[in-house]
Design a protein around this nucleic acid. Structure first.
Lengths: 119, 119
DNA sequence: ATTTAATACATAAGAATATTAGGTATAGTC
DNA sequence: GACTATACCTAATATTCTTATGTATTAAAT
């Protein structure tokens, strides 16, 4: 039985945008810190997004038009909520489909269980 | 239905070593160019390993003791065969298990189908 | 016969994306 | 009053890829 505390960093590379976009599909709006905690909870600590990775990613997604932001104050503390744009919904769907397809291919390549889809 | 020519490069990041190690599990020995072709064939061109990525990876795996090499001449053309060491077999198993676990987690995170394993 | 494509190795400059470390500040808990 | 959690951010560094380039042999096409 394979036990894993946390995935090696290389694996997570390239999936961060997809994770963020997909979370926002289900949650309408979220702020950065909330995203890190949600991912940590949902994955039993196996995926821990660092803030140094998350914030630049959020800013990039906003810049390219996939997310919009709203600032809100909780007392004196600021929160920056992110929300999917219409374009962002498309991007999210593309990314999720691609990742799902990729994982199917990888499972085939590693003899894990499935047949790959035929294009 | 989702159609995909080739995966975006970010996705493949972090899985190259695992792919190489796993191929060598099934093939005993392979040379670099052969690996690129095998992966291309097995994935219907969806994963195309570039030589600029592969050769440094092979050199790194050799340096860290997971692979050994034998040179062979086909006419005047050289081929460098790679083979798993005992250590490489362990590394391979760890990597494959980790990737399988990671993909399970990702499928859960993206609401695709499965429940994640419980550590 | 000569050009092109395939085989086969390799390195180097640059881009993308993460880690690590650091910074600021508020709010709650011991 | 100190520590932890919340909440944002950036910069230096590391890793790992792409793209471009280089060398050379062999096979196929024109």
């Amino acid at each position: 039985m394979y036990i894993c505390i946390m995935y090696s960093s290389e694996l997570i590379k390239g999936t961060l945008k997809t994770i963020v976009l997909n979370l926002l599909k289900d949650n309408e709006r979220m702020y950065g810190y909330e995203i890190t905690q949600k991912v940590k909870d949902l994955t039993q600590n196996k995926i821990q997004i660092t803030e140094g990775a998350l914030y630049p990613t959020l800013h990039a997604l906003e810049k390219q038009g996939d997310l919009t932001t709203e600032k809100e104050y909780i007392g004196k503390r600021v929160r920056k909520y992110y929300r999917l744009t219409d374009q962002g919904i498309n991007t999210m769907q593309d990314r999720v489909n691609e990742l799902a397809d990729f994982m199917k291919t990888m499972r085939f390549l590693l003899d894990l269980d499935v047949k790959p889809g035929h294009a």
